[in-house]
Amino acid sequence: MSDKTFFDEMKRSFKDIPVDEHNQISTREFLEASSSLVKLFDLLGSAAFQVVVNDMNGNITKIQKRLAQDPEHSKTLQGMVLEETKDGGKKMGTQALLWLSRGLQFTEAAMRETLDHPEKEMTETFTTAYKGTLIKYHSMFVRPIFKLAMKACPYRKDFFAKLGKDQEKVSEQIREWVKALAGIVKIIMNFYASGNYGRGL
């Protein structure tokens, strides 16, 4: 039986995303790390999380499409947003990145809450994270769907067992991953705030 963990199997971790001295984030590697993150929801083992998975995958696809359309300006996430802002047309990539980043922010908050409160089950830690992140962006029709997903979280011991056999290694890797994810999300959110790029999206 393989001793590899979920994090060993990832195509790319958030700690491996190139960020230059101006905090410019490489789009291609960011998309790889985001796709790897979405697989985490498969481990939660409930059809209720399909709504989260579909939302994130849909936004990843839109950013990939934008990268393919304009690889020169979309090499970095910030470059993509600035070019779409300059164009004044449809902001497909800008909107997709904003919503994907909100999803990443929720995931980071949920996992951090789970790590910081080992005495709590994941239904509680994920619900707390949802209330602190995504809920304010969701309509009264969407909220019940997400709340149902939070209630469908597995027992934490079952979830952590799925992450890998070596629990000490898993614990170390997940903390490193959550820290890197938080750093990337912070850069993106600060960038959006700096130019009010999310206005109307």
Rank of each mutant, 00 (worst) to 15 (best):
N57L: 01
Y192M: 07
I174L: 14
A110E: 00
T27C: 03
L31G: 02
P154K: 13
G88W: 13
N23W: 00
G200I: 01
F49V: 05
T61H: 10
G103F: 03
V81A: 06
L163D: 06
T127F: 14
D87E: 13
Y155V: 05
A129L: 10
F160G: 01
A193H: 14
M140A: 15
G45H: 12
M122D: 02
F106V: 06
F14Q: 03
E119V: 04
Y197M: 08
F14W: 10
M92A: 14
A149T: 07
E172T: 14
D16E: 15
E32K: 09
E83A: 15
A110N: 05
V142E: 02
F7R: 09
S13N: 13
E172A: 13
T125G: 12
W177T: 08
G93H: 05
A152I: 10
V185C: 11
G164D: 05
E124G: 01
F126Q: 06
K91C: 06
A129P: 13
D8E: 11
E9V: 03
F41M: 06
L201K: 02
M189V: 03
L82P: 02
I145Y: 07
I188N: 06
A180R: 07
D70R: 12
M111R: 04
K11H: 09
D8L: 09
P154D: 14
L181I: 01
E9N: 12
H22C: 04
E172D: 10
M80N: 09
T61K: 15
S13L: 07
W99T: 04
E113A: 08
N190W: 06
G45D: 15
A152Q: 12
F159T: 07
T61W: 03
K62G: 02
A161G: 10
L40M: 11
R112Y: 02
E21P: 00
Y155A: 15
D70P: 04
Q78Y: 02
K90T: 14
L115H: 00
K147V: 00
L97M: 08
Q64L: 11
K39N: 09
F126W: 13
T128G: 08
Y130S: 06
S46L: 05
S36T: 05
